[in-house]
Structure formats: C-alpha cells, structure tokens
Amino acid sequence: MPQTSQNLFQAEKLEQLRTIVVQVLELGPDELTETSHFVNDHDADSLLALEILARIELDLGVSIPQEDLPEMVTLTAVHDVVARNAGWEIPNA
C-alpha cells in the first residue's frame, strides 16, 4: 500500500513528537511506544508533562491550552492534541 502525503506528514510529525518526549523523559529511543503511558510506564510527573508541553510549543511553534494537558498521556494522545491545535489536517491531494 503506497504512502500518501497525509501519511508521510503524520509520520514525520509523530517522529518529531517522539524525539521531544524521549528527550524530556530521558528514555532510550526504543523505550517509548505510541501507547506507553507516560506516568504508569515511564514514571513521568506533572512537571515533566509541563516540560513536554513547553518543548512542543517552543520546537514546533504550536500553542496548546493547558486544559489539554491531562489528555497528553501517551505519544498517540500527544499527537492527537497537537494535531488538533496545530491544524495539521492537510487536504487529500
């Protein structure tokens, strides 16, 4: 199945987010899955969650309301929140 431009775009953004989360949580690249829970699986706390949020805003230029922070507990959830706030939906070409 060929990759669409939407899929490639989403994969690129997911990798950018993975890099941020891995750095903030001080994990090895293979320790973070798309569904591993930051608190339960990686001992993250609220300060680390705020640091992830701040790094996303700084590195990607996306403004995320702090009310969305409780949703951001896995890499997939972070991607969904950031995509929603960044308008990353691109039309099918």
Rank of each mutant, 00 (worst) to 15 (best):
V39M: 11
T76I: 08
T33H: 07
D59L: 07
E51M: 04
G87E: 14
E71H: 15
S36H: 06
V73K: 13
N85H: 10
E51K: 07
D80T: 15
S36P: 02
V62Y: 09
D30A: 12
A54M: 14
K13H: 11
L25V: 01
L60V: 04
L32W: 05
I20C: 00
E15A: 10
E57A: 04
Q6S: 10
L47P: 03
T35Y: 09
A86F: 12
I56A: 03
Q6N: 09
V81G: 01
L48A: 05
A44Q: 02
D30L: 08
A83R: 14
W88D: 09
P29L: 12
D45K: 03
F38L: 03
D59A: 14
D80Q: 09
A44P: 02
Q6F: 09
Q23I: 00
E12M: 10
I52N: 00
D30Q: 15
D43A: 13
T19W: 00
T76M: 09
Q3M: 10
A11N: 12
E12P: 02
V81I: 14
W88Q: 13
L25R: 00
P91H: 13
M72S: 05
E12V: 10
I20P: 00
E15K: 12
L27A: 02
L17N: 00
D45V: 06
P70E: 15
V73F: 08
R18M: 06
E67P: 07
A44N: 03
L27W: 02
S46V: 07
A44I: 03
V73T: 12
